[in-house]
Amino acid sequence: MLLFEENNNWETKLLPLITKYKGKKHPLEYANTYQLMIMVILSAQDSDANINKIAPAFFNRFPTLESIKSISLEELYPYVSKVRNFNTKSTWILEIAQTLQTESAIPNNLNELIALKGIGRKSANVILRESNAPAEGIIADLHVIRVAPRIGLCPESKDGNKIEKQLMQLLPQNLWGEIGMAISFLGREICRPTNPKCNQCPLQNDCHYPLKTL
């Protein structure tokens, strides 16, 4: 038996989830789009909690994109050394600063964002969502990759881009801006990898996960 259904009125079924988390700020503790962009880049393969921890010192030293564009990598390293793959990420950040020059040049569309080093579709979708820009895709972070197939939205895959594409084909565009982050919060707070709190889930009546436990 298939544990996902391509046409099963998911738009209506997902409304309680979207209502629960609509507009909830991303766990990264940023103050503006510049900070969000830098933190999203640093958070790849790392935890939001770790990035939140190192961010205050980073932004105290580099309060604007302009303050980064003329420095050396060696000046950047002490502020990101506790971040995974900080050498590569520092190179990306410096290149972005030199390319954009000013914060006002940070793109507000998907294609221009993913053209920047270190920003893939997931990161770009986060930036667009948090900036209240029109959604051009769906956030597919590690939580979405795990939870979307579990609840029955799509087949299992470890490929975030594949999960995103499947969700975009399944769901109307008016849901794109919120559904990814809503599923992510669901995965963080309720639909945990082990011992999920199914009795607290707004999708408990439509989720396919209980079928796997029968």
Rank of each mutant, 00 (worst) to 15 (best):
Y79N: 09
I179C: 02
E136V: 05
P210K: 08
N199G: 04
E189V: 14
A115I: 03
G23F: 08
E103T: 11
T88D: 02
L94Q: 01
A31D: 13
K20D: 02
Y209E: 10
Q98V: 03
L203D: 04
V126T: 03
I151V: 12
L170A: 06
P193N: 06
Y77F: 15
E136N: 04
S157W: 05
E6V: 05
E178L: 00
N125D: 15
N87C: 06
S47V: 10
T99M: 09
I106V: 14
R129K: 10
I41S: 06
N199S: 12
N32R: 10
L3D: 11
L2A: 13
P107T: 14
P63D: 05
L94R: 06
E112Y: 01
Y209K: 02
N87S: 11
L65H: 03
K165W: 06
E66Q: 11
Q45A: 10
S90T: 13
L15F: 05
K158R: 13
I183D: 00
R61S: 08
P107C: 14
G180L: 08
F86Y: 15
I163D: 02
E178Y: 02
N60P: 00
L14T: 03
E103F: 04
L65Q: 00
F59G: 01
N32I: 10
L211W: 09
I139A: 14
I119E: 01
P193K: 04
L100W: 03
H208P: 00
P155I: 00
R61E: 13
T64L: 06
L128M: 15
S43F: 02
P149T: 12
L211F: 13
L65K: 02
R121G: 01
